[in-house]
Amino acid sequence: MNQETSLVATLPSTPRGARAARALTVAQLAERKLPFEDAAQVVAELAANAVTHGRVRGRDFRLVLHLAQGPTLRIEVSDTRREFEPAAACGAPDPEAESGRGLVLVSALASRWGTDLGPTPLKTVWAEMDLASPISSDRGFHDPVDQYPVPHDA
């Protein structure tokens, strides 16, 4: 697979750093005239997790974007909290929870995702997206009104 690294950025483990990761992704993909909305959302979720769960005072997180033929985008977000490895399976979040939906969203938008553990304490959460065949705009969600037949006498 012919792959090009289009971005490597080290960012502060702060909300501002997470926003910068999203903005850098949008800029890189827009410059190449590639669809960026879903990729920006995936980066936002992975960066937010790195900032929230992977933060170690004084240590940054890293964002890497790889583009391959197709085009396929591989997003990698690395932090230094190896002990906070994301769950491999994304189940339905607790409806009462105020958080916990980020990896469900990543799973829905990406073709595949996972975690690689590097030298201690490095952890990289990655996601791959096929930019040539975007998911339908309705993402599988339908208006619940559509399930009821329209009365013929209306």
Rank of each mutant, 00 (worst) to 15 (best):
G17T: 11
D116S: 10
D116V: 07
R62C: 10
H53N: 14
R59I: 00
E98F: 07
H142L: 01
L67K: 03
P144E: 10
R22K: 13
F36A: 13
A50G: 06
G114Q: 12
A92G: 00
F61W: 11
E128R: 12
T72V: 13
S136C: 02
V125R: 05
R139C: 00
A87H: 11
P86L: 12
T52G: 05
V43T: 13
L117G: 01
D38I: 00
W113C: 10
F141M: 02
V56K: 15
D79N: 15
S99F: 14
A108W: 00
R22A: 10
F141Q: 00
L117C: 09
A21I: 11
V77H: 10
P119H: 11
H66G: 01
L29K: 06
V104I: 05
L73F: 09
E85C: 08
R16I: 14
L65V: 01
A20H: 10
F141V: 02
S78Y: 06
P12S: 10
A40N: 03
T80A: 06
A97F: 09
V42K: 00
D79Y: 01
S78R: 14
H142R: 06
P35I: 07
Q41H: 10
L122E: 11
L73S: 08
A88S: 15
T14Y: 13
F61K: 09
G140R: 02
